[in-house]
Amino acid sequence: MSIWEYANPKRFMQSSARVLPWVTGLAALALLGGLAWGFFLTPDDYRQGSTVKIIYLHVPSAMLAINGWGMMLVASLIWLIRRHHVSALAARAAAPVGMTMTLIALFTGAIWGQPMWGTWWEWDPRLTSFLILFLFYLGYIALWEAIDNPDTAADLTSVLCLVGSVFAVLSRYAVNFWNQGLHQGASLSVDAQENVADVFWYPLLTCIAGFVLLFVALVLIRTRTEIRARRLQALEARERMA
């Protein structure tokens, strides 16, 4: 059986209904466990104090803000190439979730930045890139909302997602060029030397897993809603034709 079988709306509804409770449950477990572990069972940082603990919200949400857009890009490409409606609807479903992740990353960043840098907002390259990413999400969602015909909307938003991705990467390098920034280096890296200490690392990994599962669960739920809405539209159209 090919993976594309799941692009059939009916199959998708069946499989996602089976998977969803597990994903949701695991997401809740990992999130609650990871956050509790991180907040209450890890020591304060010798330099940053207890402020450092916001890392458990900030890093996972920032990762998903970027990867959410990446998922939309892949889903848009699948729609443009293979014309699977579920793919387009999944991209649509992911956008508000990704945008919320971007907002969480921005807000937790501000809360972290205030005691560390003495300011809520700094035009640092990373912060600025996230603000621009937020604008991209906003435009993408607004375009979906503005167009009535679902296939037209799917096509146009997919093209926007493609072009937007290129410009988002371009903006990332442009803002790097423009301001060197205060933000600390990556918290996670393949190079173990650069990583945060193990005692923060394991709860952080748990939180990341929880956020990923939460993202998957939310996107699945929203995609199912979109499919039902499309079905409703199709039924109404048939009503009118009969």
């Binding site: 059939n8 009916k10 509804m13 499919i227 499309r230 079905r231 199709a234 048939r238």
Partner: peptide, 19 residues
Amino acid sequence: KARPPAAGGRGHPFDEAFA
């Protein structure tokens, strides 16, 4: 004139859940 597809949407078998 196109007939409305029967319930279950045999017109587009792949996207049947939409019809």
